[in-house]
Simulated scan of single mutants.
Amino acid sequence: MREPSVFARIAQGASCQAGRSWAFVAAATVVLVWAATGPVFGFSDTWQLVINTGTTIITFLMVFLIQHAQNRDTQAIHAKLDELIRATQGAHNRLIALEDQSEEELARTREELRRVAEASQAVVREALPLAGARR
């Protein structure tokens, strides 16, 4: 198995830590300390710029970390679902790697599956009164 890249290890670690309660407490503490120092700095433009710049930089970096984690999770889920489709008898193998289809192909596949589901529901509805009559 291949060793993850340095970015992947940093992104995975940072996204795990950012979701913990201590990270929220630390962020809230920073905001409270910043707010408490307002009177000391006379609520100056520089005082406001400090929090604005800090939160902008952190938000900018977190977007990339969150997107990386989301991409990784999505790829893992797709791989697991593809394996379930492959291993399930009667499943449509053409659904494997469905995410790689064009928007039009995806829409056609979804419509076809919707029709199959509706037909299955109609069969079940027709069978239910018969099952009740036998009792």
Rank of each mutant, 00 (worst) to 15 (best):
T109P: 01
N71A: 11
A79N: 10
D82A: 11
L65D: 03
T59P: 00
E112W: 01
Q89Y: 05
I57A: 12
Q12D: 14
E105A: 14
T109M: 11
T56L: 14
L61Q: 07
S15W: 08
T88Y: 07
T53F: 09
A27I: 09
A107C: 05
L113Q: 13
A11T: 01
Q89A: 10
Q70G: 03
F64S: 13
S5E: 14
E104F: 09
M1W: 03
F7K: 10
W22Y: 13
W34C: 02
P4E: 08
F43D: 04
S5F: 08
E3G: 00
A107N: 13
A26E: 02
N71P: 00
S21M: 10
I77A: 14
C16W: 09
Q17S: 12
T74R: 08
A18T: 03
G54L: 01
A91R: 01
H92Q: 11
N93F: 11
I51P: 00
P4Q: 10
R134P: 00
A87E: 09
A131C: 06
D73P: 00
A69Q: 01
A11K: 02
A36I: 06
M62G: 12
D82V: 03
M62V: 02
S120I: 02
F7R: 08
F60Y: 10
A27W: 13
F64V: 05
D73V: 08
E105M: 08
E104Y: 07
H92M: 08
L95Q: 08
E104S: 11
A28F: 12
S21I: 12
V116M: 08
P4S: 09
A133R: 13
L32I: 15
R86S: 06
A14N: 01
T56V: 02
V50A: 07
G90M: 01
M62Q: 13
A23F: 15
A23W: 12
E99A: 07
A69C: 05
T74M: 09
S44M: 11
A107F: 14
V6H: 06
R135I: 14
E112I: 00
P39L: 08
E118N: 13
V40H: 06
Q75M: 12
N93T: 14
L65F: 15
E83F: 04
Q101H: 01
C16G: 08
Q70K: 11
P4F: 10
T74K: 06
C16P: 00
E126A: 15
T88L: 04
A27R: 10
V40Y: 14
F64Q: 06
I77R: 13
A76Y: 00
T74P: 00
T53A: 12
A97Y: 09
L106T: 10
A87T: 07
R9W: 03
H68Y: 14
A107D: 15
H68K: 01
A127I: 04
R94I: 06
R110G: 00
